[in-house]
Design a protein around this nucleic acid. Sequence first.
DNA 1: ACTATATCGTGTATGATATACACAGTTCTC
DNA 2: GAGAACTGTGTATATCATACACGATATAGT
Lengths: 291, 291
Amino acid sequence: MARQTGGKRPPGRTTKPTRKREAHPPAVASVASAGQDLTKRSELLWEAQLRSSRGPKPALRREDVVQAAIDIADGEDLAALTMHAVAAKLGFTTMALYRYFPNKEALIDSAVDAAMGAPPHRPEPRQGWREEVRRWAYAKRAMLCSRPWLAELPFVAAPHGPNWLSWHEALLWAIGDTRLRPEDMMDVLSVIHGYVSGSSDTAISLARALARGISSEQWARAVGADLGRAINDPRYPILSAILTSASGGISSTAPLPARGGRPRTLDESFDFGLERVLDGIQLHLDSLKGL
Amino acid sequence: MARQTGGKRPPGRTTKPTRKREAHPPAVASVASAGQDLTKRSELLWEAQLRSSRGPKPALRREDVVQAAIDIADGEDLAALTMHAVAAKLGFTTMALYRYFPNKEALIDSAVDAAMGAPPHRPEPRQGWREEVRRWAYAKRAMLCSRPWLAELPFVAAPHGPNWLSWHEALLWAIGDTRLRPEDMMDVLSVIHGYVSGSSDTAISLARALARGISSEQWARAVGADLGRAINDPRYPILSAILTSASGGISSTAPLPARGGRPRTLDESFDFGLERVLDGIQLHLDSLKGL
DNA sequence: ACTATATCGTGTATGATATACACAGTTCTC
DNA sequence: GAGAACTGTGTATATCATACACGATATAGT
């Protein structure tokens, strides 16, 4: 359902806009380098789409554009997410999008937040902080893995939208079931958040591979080959020993050749780490109780 | 010291290369989306620059190109890192770089690994795993903060080079001072690694701001404003309460207005989390000892 | 109703960017 | 000493984000 409203004019024109312009940083680069102030980006992310009464009704809503962008990133990858692709998917011209977002960066900021979705629902009877944090962590990891392209964007420089805050709120709720003082809760939050986002990289990489039709065996081979270069390299004696002697390899499900114990699945490794982190927090809570 | 070796030809040519080509994905996008197999990228990253005896001596070494790239990213940011910029910095044409790296992605892969540098030196008398892991964690965080642009690249999809392996080796060495079975060491490594890389985001963001001449107060204001939207928003009751009642705000050094206890510095928060993680690991080690 | 005006989607143009290709100069190998 | 292999260069092209102005549209104020 292509939309054609604009008028047709004869091709030959005499416009001569030789005005000097600022540079147009290309695509993802501009996103990556956070061209605008974070402040301005944040405003754009939060401000509602206000509609003036004059003029034709907009044919789209921002959400529509955002959804199209997400669909593209989901279906292909971040590189496929061009302004043209988004517009085409909606049946509009590229430039039409600029009526909704001032630039690609703003669109992506919105898409990222929307793509995060809402955090998991809270279990009806409280389960205790540990179980609830666990649920949160799994959910967050699953969310990241289900949209591997999110990890290709520099979260670092991105403004925080409503969903981002919701995820944090949900984690705070989980932690709320403790005796932590409010000002300490953010610290605990940041441990958990840090661990979860930091340690999901490999799983995300696998998820992306799977999404692109690469088998987990192929993927494991690729990553394994990478690590495998350490073997017999005198610079990496310990790593080398681990990789050869035992089951140190990264494994997706059915793993690399292993001799020693059974190698851990990615998920198992994540679990292991999470439990260590939770233990550490537990210990801290216990020490507070003693006071 | 520009270099001009190539010949001059009259501008009018009769080449007609209308051959069909593959798409030329633009800049960072291609990096982000990991166009090539990880396998191929990994090979490129590790393969030595082999020099055939014929022909003119290359005027550069890969390291030179990589260094120029790093200098640009350090001095400006990732967006400024264009093939043209790198070449210009070396006094060559853009295309000259392609004699050293088949594409930008390969150059960046190399630059990333080189930029990581070597892990910290190992303390002469062993300090015990906990202290050594701490040292490693601080060093890694410091490294990331000193080159904020590293965090703008999707590590997820990147191949692992020599320095990456060295950092891992160093951490394994630190952990080596325990009774962990080899096959469990990777799990412990991944907890620490996950926490450190995941929880450095905010500090990296601050580091980047500082590098761009933004004061830490300005930065804190920007990030704070972001969080501040939660205040009085019914969707975020807990967050809101924390932010208003106490010192939950993110602070660089001299922080946001705080009423309750003193707000944590970013570094203090990192420390706190790290100690929790280390506690958790400690606990695990103790439990192993018992067996 | 009528007109001014703000807004919409469009067509076109531009500058940045990565990179393909062919050439001319350079330096070994045979 | 000739040819082969490689070097840096110049030029061309596709892809992108995005500026700008136009004609169409719909509301506000008269």
